[in-house]
Every structure is written in C-alpha cells, then in structure tokens.
Simulated scan of single mutants.
Amino acid sequence: MKHLNIAVGIIRNSQQEIFITRRAVDSHMAGFWEFPGGKIELGETPEQALRRELTEETGIVAHHVQLLEILEHRFSDRVVTLHFYLAEDWDGEPYGREGQPIRWVKQIDLRAEEFPEANARIIELLVAQAGVAQ
C-alpha cells in the first residue's frame, strides 16, 4: 500500500482566521477544502517541505512554524502521515498561486465535514483551542 508523508501548514492571522484552499477537481479528495501543503520529498525534513509548499501554493515565506500534531490516516488505497504545523509569522499575503479558490475562516468556525476525513482530528483540536481562547 502506498504511504505518503505530507507537510501541512495551518496559516493563522492575528484575527484568529485560518487560510484554506479548495482541492482541485482532478485531485484525490477533489472539492474539499484543505490546509496548504504537500508531499515531503526525499531528503527534505517536514519543516523544509512545509516552507517549500507554502511558497509554491500560497506565495508566502513562513518564518517561524510550530509543529502541532502528527497524525496518520488510512484510506482504502493509501496511508498518509500528516505533519501539521502552525504558521503565524510570514512575508507576503497568501493567495491561491495555482488558481485554487481560497478563503479565510475563523478558527472556531472550521467544519470537519468540509475537509478530507484525514483532517478531522486536527480541526477538532483547532476548534477546541479557539473555544478556550474566547
């Protein structure tokens, strides 16, 4: 079974909003919203992959990132290990460099059903964290 290691960036601004993008129609889990990120290439650390992917997908250069969680999820055809990082300090303004739709969502308003199933646990953690902060 195919195993993928993925670096995922949770870009959060000072208004406690999270930047998300919509998955392309020709991609695995098409149409769902997602946090920017992508495959960790051979020889890259998860943090290096994250920084590369954030620049490629959103046009930002992340400064300090913090590892939040590492989660594994099994699909029928693959296993993914997701390395979730929080990015709150960056240069540039995030946008969909690949033409993908984007939006900013209040952290507390994230909805797991709008994302691939593999993101459910991190969304639960983010929403709970936002609820405590209020």
Rank of each mutant, 00 (worst) to 15 (best):
L125N: 14
A120Y: 03
V65A: 06
A130D: 08
E113A: 03
A118T: 07
S27D: 15
H83C: 11
E72K: 10
R74D: 13
I18G: 03
G9I: 02
G31C: 06
Q48I: 14
A133P: 10
E44K: 10
R12D: 08
M1H: 05
L68T: 09
H73F: 08
K106Y: 04
E47V: 03
H83M: 15
L42E: 05
D91S: 05
V79G: 15
L126V: 13
Q66W: 04
H28N: 11
L110C: 03
E69C: 12
A30G: 05
N119L: 06
R103Q: 09
Q66A: 06
D77Q: 14
I6Y: 02
L67W: 02
Q66C: 10
Y85S: 06
G9Y: 00
Q48C: 04
D77Y: 08
T58W: 00
K39M: 11
Q15V: 05
P94G: 07
V61E: 13
L125H: 10
R22E: 05
G43N: 06
L50D: 07
E47H: 02
Q15H: 07
L71R: 12
D26M: 14
L42A: 07
F115I: 04
I122W: 01
Q129S: 11
S14N: 13
G38P: 08
I10D: 09
F19N: 04
E114M: 01
H28P: 12
K106N: 13
K2P: 15
E69L: 14
V105A: 01
W33H: 02
E88N: 05
K39F: 11
H64F: 00
I6R: 09
L125P: 09
F19C: 03
H64D: 15
E53Y: 04
V25R: 14
R121T: 10
W104Q: 05
E114K: 04
I70K: 09
A87I: 01
V105Y: 01
E56P: 08
I18C: 06
T45D: 05
V80M: 12
E113Y: 02
E117M: 05
E47S: 08
Q66R: 12
D77N: 09
T58G: 07
A30R: 11
D89V: 00
A62M: 06
L125W: 06
F19E: 05
R111C: 03
E34C: 12
K106D: 09
K106A: 13
I6H: 06
Q16S: 13
